[in-house]
Design a protein around this nucleic acid. Structure first.
Length: 459
RNA sequence: GACCCGUUCGUCUAGAGGCCUAGGACACUGGCCUUUCACGCCGGCAACACGGGUUCGAAUCCCGUACGGGUCGCCA
């Protein structure tokens, strides 16, 4: 039997972190077993489902490389099939029409809460011929006695007494199917073998199983994964980490970093931390999923992100620095040489253009406020002398280093006497990668002009 | 309130009765490297929720307590 998993978000908002991780687990599990990973949009709630949300979910999944196999299924388009199943259950006596009004229900619920009992519809065993000419819901008859045990792949054996299960509504008063019915029918029709979803669905699983049993369908393997909490331990809300997946793209996170982080949140493979997509596919299993909820930690995400930024090629880094800007070939070449040094210092993609700005042109950079103090009269005098002594030929970093060492010697100076001010004059910044590497990639003419330009006022 | 689940360093976790004086990663922190920042390297801080069992032996098994979370919709 080949594995089929699915990710089934409801389009009532963007793709959030928890959903992204659920999608990732489903994707990984399917790939691991050479199966299929399907996408289904659970839009049975017409009131709250929006086209914007559907687009946002697709966008988020695509960014993370978690688009489903084939076209996404729209649950609302399958309403007829859901109703058909409900009718069938009605006919086989597994379901009944319930004429309880919302008001009656509210009252019953309040009372049930008091007594600790579940609510029971009087229509469950009523004679259908007494039925009023009123809108009705179709409810499934839950067994009254006994219990059901789910052997959850993550949570283990979980048992619930039937006496606590109420008769779930499958068809609403307006005849439309509910989520509870739709999931079961769609999962069955799509051939889903493994249901990997959030822990908040564990209780639903018992109810859903009764529909499955009533239809005589095979029960899928359930894996209810623990929820992700915010940094304060409370349920993830928009207040803390529950931003959209794409919001993290905007903040400068790489999708690889996001997936790696999400994978390790609740799942582990020994002490491995940095795990590529291919390794994840090879290693992922349900046993590795922890049972307790995990907190979202931005610091760790950022640490992983900086790791992935460092692993980017000089070409890719250069593109990120340039951000679409057109530059002369010699600038591109310069950036290729400097890119790894910048990457080593970046935590977010946005850091790249900010710190490499001075290298993207041949103009004289403006000296930033915190670097101005480095260019006092004495420093400028030294720099001017240095510029005068610097040969016009361009040098490799090694050659530049050798020249600088010699020059320092003849001047009776130390590296610390020239390094910081040279950096300030040439880059306009106080902190940059190795100034020798930068000077070599800039070239003599550039260095001289920048020194002259930035030391002129102080002289 | 009822039902279900969970509980190892601040955080993510390793750990499936002796390999644990509990390991790794992030964060924090001392140092080295060094022209700055960063990387890297060496070191430090820091946890088995609590109480009972079972056992020669428990972080690992059982029971209870506490705390945390989830669910109880004609939402998904």
């Amino acid at each position: 039997m080949s594995v089929i998993t699915r990710f089934a978000p409801s389009p009532t908002g963007f793709l959030h972190i928890g959903g992204a991780r659920t999608a990732l687990f489903n994707y990984l599990f399917a790939r691991r077993h050479g199966g299929k990973y399907l996408l289904r949009i659970e839009d049975t709630d017409h009131e709250r489902s929006t086209k914007e949300a559907i687009d946002a979910i697709h966008e988020g999944l695509e960014w993370l490389g978690l688009a489903g196999d084939g076209e996404a299924v729209s649950q609302s388009a399958r309403a007829d099939r859901h109703i058909e199943v409900a009718e069938q259950l009605l006919q086989s006596g597994h379901a009944y029409r319930c004429y309880l009004t919302p008001e009656e229900l509210t009252a019953m619920r309040a009372e049930a809460r008091q007594t600790g009992q579940k609510i029971t519809s009087p229509w469950r065993d009523a004679d259908p011929s007494n039925a009023p000419d009123l809108p009705f819901t179709v409810r499934l008859k839950m067994p009254l006695e006994g219990s059901t045990t789910i052997n959850d792949a993550v949570q283990g054996d979980v048992t619930v007494q039937h006496s606590t299960l109420d008769d779930l509504v499958m068809l609403r008063g307006d005849g439309t199917p509910t989520y509870m019915l739709a999931v079961v029918v769609d999962d069955h029709d799509m051939g889903v073998t493994h249901v990997i979803r959030g822990d908040d669905h564990l209780n639903n699983a018992f109810r859903q199983m009764k529909i499955i049993e009533a239809m005589g369908w095979p029960v899928p393997v359930y894996a209810h994964i623990p929820l992700i909490h915010g940094a304060d331990g409370a349920k993830l809300s928009k207040r803390h980490g529950a931003l959209s997946a794409t919001a993290y793209r905007e903040m400068g996170y790489l999708p690889e970093a996001m997936c790696n982080y999400l994978l390790r949140l609740g799942w582990s493979h020994g002490d491995d931390e940095i795990i590529t997509r291919d390794q994840a596919i090879e290693w992922f299993d349900l046993d590795g999923i922890g049972k307790s909820p995990a907190r979202f930690d931005t610091d760790k995400l950022t640490a992983i992100n900086s790791h992935y930024i460092r692993s980017l090629s000089p070409e890719a880094l250069t593109d990120l620095i340039l951000n679409g800007a057109e530059v002369a070939p010699h600038i591109t070449e310069r950036l290729h040489a400097l890119a790894p040094a910048f990457a080593e210092r970046a935590q977010h993609l946005g850091d790249l253009p900010a710190m490499a700005g001075f290298a993207t042109h041949d103009d004289i950079p403006t000296v930033e406020a915190d670097a101005q103090g480095l260019l006092d009269d004495a420093a400028c005098a030294r720099l001017t002398q240095f510029a005068a002594d610097l040969p016009d030929d361009n040098m490799t970093p090694e050659a530049f280093k050798a020249f600088l060492g010699e020059w320092l010697n003849t001047q009776g100076l130390k590296m610390r006497d020239i390094g910081p001010c040279l950096r300030a004059a040439v880059t306009g910044m106080k902190q940059t990668p190795d100034i020798i590497l930068i000077c070599a990639s800039l070239g003599a003419e550039n260095i001289k002009r920048r020194i002259a330009g930035n030391c002129k006022n102080e002289q």
